[in-house]
Design a protein around this nucleic acid. Structure first.
Lengths: 346, 346
DNA sequence: ATGCTCCACCCAATCGTTTGCGCCAATCGT
DNA sequence: ACGATTGGCGCAAACGATTGGGTGGAGCAT
């Protein structure tokens, strides 16, 4: 089909048909419905037939150059190898594809310099907008003046300044878990809090500690431990918390990965989950339920966040007013959280 | 700085300087080194100064249109939410960035129709080449004639027809594990084999069973169970294998996720890992070591695969002859694999 | 003075589309 | 029968960059 001479262009089609390229362009861009007023019904048919006989695909570079619209969006994440992020991205990709957009996705490793560099890079690619999933609470990287001319929305993490974002209601998620721990009778609790620059971690932590404070059991500062979001960080933080003289009976790790690290720490200390120690994570990743001791976690709508972020961005690009959205979390109680046990237990 | 009138173009710079755009283009494209022969030293300086005072970034659409080179590569994976894949992609992205390329990455969910559609999509975006990480052994989706005109390489999975690929030496990895099980004295072993269309699973399986056959202990067909690559699949397959009358003493799951599913199954059956049952995975994902019972696994160089795939693709694009590469795996023995125990145990 | 070589630039075509405008013929109204 | 519509297309100018081919003048040797 596409055999002949190089890629099929509008001009190629026009010449074969003895028409002008502008006519062909109008027809091919016009609505598929019978009547635009692009050309006569007969001509329309001939053009359409030849176009897909030849497998014509418009050259996006030419189109973008002319229209100043690239149908490209840039997507920034700390690291795609984290399942939560990857799942959000799946939602982004799904919706973007549905809307005829392509995405440039890139890992910034939460490094401010890389963030700036990558923002510059996608902007250089002339994206129509960007979806930022690695924002730091202070919004530093977003202050780049180059961003003034390109619309963007946040996803996954929000920012203090209140830029439009789609996130899980992390604060509420933290409260849910606190509620759960309280109902189980845990009074001495701790938080593996993740990175202080990520709203996911801080909001979950705040929701949790707020609820505990309201219950008259404020969580002391030394029982809130910041750490990296991975297993290694969770492990270290948990180790410190659990070797404390006054060991907490329940630990909330602000994501499942950190929780798994905490499991490792508990194992090393000879503590059995659900018996000696209650442990909960966040995000309800597919692993949580399969672990030897199934992990209590808070389910957050990840792919949905991604889909909504795309739609939000589209509205921003269209110049419509937009507001942030938060999606409701859901508690998934499992065996890793049980009633507290007395200090006599070893 | 970029304040004034719209985006900075070559023409804008040329006009301000009273030069011709072609001169500016040559200077800005020329080597940074003092002496091309683009223009006088003085002119070069003036152009460079103004260009970065104004924050000039060439419009990639215009460049691509003219040069027929997009510096874009398409990347196909089954699903980015699998950590192995995501890690390979990190390698791809790192190297691509280093080489001045941008990537379109997309999830095909191992669905042939989606694969074809996505290939068409990235081709439509006029990528310079593609990196395919979701190939099926039969190479069906690669037969698309549209692919004839665009170079591509495989990563992660190879294909029967031998198209250039960068993979882990999965066969060798399977053998390593068989060796390990043999040295521990396991004679009745089983394989959670993953999807039959993915070379990763089949090669690991074949390596494993070959080694056992060589040891005079062929693994019967009913002890090799195909399943999806996720925890659910691993769980189901393991459940079937472990409820067999003649229960195997050791199980090799061809990836860590399936292994975790198998852990769930073992847990449900009351089997303790490393005591009643030896279990091993593949890929040595960061979780493996942190699990309550640390999981024996085979480490495969994932990011390195990605980096090499990019370099291989670049050579292909340049028209150089290329050959497939396999990277050596490495056994990481941990507590989940222990010596076999008699049938009396419960 | 003449012819040559270089240097430092400029010219203009081109990549493939989009889009405001204009033109010609057929049709319509009266 | 004649001016006014209108349908159906063609024209040409963009969009921003690259690149093969000039061109004019300075510098040099003869």
């Amino acid at each position: 089909m596409a055999g002949d001479g190089g890629p099929v262009t509008l001009r190629g089609i026009a010449e074969r048909l003895g028409l002008h390229v502008s006519t062909v362009s109008r027809v091919l861009n016009g609505p598929t419905g019978e009547q635009g007023r692009a050309a006569s019904a007969e001509t329309v048919r001939r053009i359409r037939d030849l176009a897909d006989e030849l497998g014509y695909r418009p050259n996006p570079h030419a189109t973008s150059l002319r229209t100043r619209r690239s149908n490209l969006v840039g997507v920034l994440f700390p690291r795609l190898s984290e399942i939560v992020v990857a799942t959000i991205y799946e939602g982004v990709e799904e919706e973007a594809t549905a809307q005829g957009l392509s995405t440039f996705v890139t890992n910034t490793h939460d490094d401010p310099a890389t963030q700036r560099e990558r923002i510059a890079m996608v902007l250089g690619r002339r994206v129509d907008g960007l979806i930022i999933g690695d924002a730091h609470l202070d919004g530093a990287a977003l202050a780049d003046p180059a961003l003034d001319s390109t619309p963007f929305v946040l996803v996954n993490r929000r920012v203090e300044s209140g830029h439009p974002a789609v996130t899980c209601d992390d604060y509420q998620g933290g409260r849910l878990l606190a509620e759960h721990f309280l109902s189980l009778g845990h009074r001495r609790v701790a938080v593996v809090a993740g990175e202080p620059f990520a709203s996911t971690g801080t909001d979950r932590t705040t929701g949790f500690t707020d609820r505990y404070r309201e219950a008259g059991l404020p969580v002391p500062a030394h029982r809130v431990r910041h750490c990296s979001f991975d297993t290694a960080g969770g492990r270290r933080a948990a180790l410190e918390l659990l070797t404390d003289a006054d060991r907490p009976t329940a630990v909330f790790a602000v994501n499942d990965l950190a929780a798994i690290g905490a499991m490792g720490a508990a194992r090393d200390l000879g503590l059995r989950l659900g018996e000696h120690l209650a442990l909960a994570g966040f995000n309800d990743t597919p692993l949580a339920a399969e672990l030897p001791v199934p992990l209590t976690s808070v389910r957050s709508p990840m792919a949905e966040q991604g889909r909504r972020a795309v739609r939000l961005l589209l509205r921003r690009i269209a110049g419509e007013p937009v507001a942030s959205q938060t999606l409701p979390p859901q508690l998934m109680a499992r065996a890793s959280t049980g009633a507290p046990v007395g200090p006599d237990l070893r």
